[in-house]
Amino acid sequence: MTENFLSLLFIVVLMLVAVPPITYLERKVLGHMQQRPGPMVVGPHGILQPIADAVKLIFKEDVVPKGADKFLFIIAPSFSVFAALLAASVVPIGFINAVPMKSGLLFVMAMSAISIYALFLAGYSSNDKYSFLAGMRAAAQVLGFELPMGFALMAVVILFGSFDFNEIIKWQQQHGWGILYQPIAFLIFLVMMIAEINRPPFDLPEGESELVGGFHTEYSGMRFAAFFFGEYINIIVLSLVITALFFGGWSGPFAEKFPILGVIYHLLKASFFIFLAFWLRATFPRYRFDQMLSIMWKVFLPLSILNLLIAAGEALLVG
């Protein structure tokens, strides 16, 4: 019981503390990929930039635009952080497992899906046409990615026979990594993960070249920052999930003897996918909206349903 509470505190603190360095790393990585140095002024190589940002954001004026729905406007950023933190609660990192839940995978899916409400409410309540369009886009984007993601996860669940992360990783320790069995599910889940966290090339609700700032046009100060807390926590959580499903989670050499190594393995594997999110942002242009919806519905959805057949065959063979 005390273990659970300690790991619970660890996860909350990790999620909140990890976000500012990740925003710094994102800018640095993007900068170097585009052959410019990135933040360089505050501290050596700009390493104190997140602190400067935090001070600036904390001391900004609290502005609620005229004609906005005040209650929803205030609640939307809170909802973003809340849903992201709840999704983080059930994902085990090595032996650190705050809420060991039998249906952990379903819970993560549900929580990261409802975090889209934050974007929709923010866009709807701002009384701004750009925000409103972005909110509509966020709602339609869910309709696109949720189904292929569900079917990709279903294929994986058929293979592993459980929603419990501990069971899933135990299966992989016996039979080998999930990506060896389900490469198609991995690719679909990766694309849908990028769409779920609204990262480029699927950052349509933000779309700064079309919609000013998208759903957070009217937000400033810590309300604005809260959306990014939510977004980056979701990135971390989904990276942990994808490593747990396809790359053996915390399994690795000597991880059985020294459990702390398992935590490090899991975080290292997950950090590659966080890096991949930055990498994709530097590489791809944004999709047009109808292109995105039609690729989701006409390519990924049939593919993920066909993948169920492959998964069923494998489950019968492997046992």
């Binding site: 619970l8 205030i74 809170s78 952080v81 933190l85 709840l86 705050a98 809420v99 309300r223 809260a226």
Partner: peptide, 22 residues
């Protein structure tokens, strides 16, 4: 039970962080 505690912690954090400016 731990999930409930987590729920409450997440709720306080989520209500606190965006409203620091107040």
């Amino acid at each position: 039970l731990t999930l409930l505690v987590f729920f409450l912690i997440a709720l306080t954090v989520a209500l606190l962080v965006p409203n620091i400016n107040l």
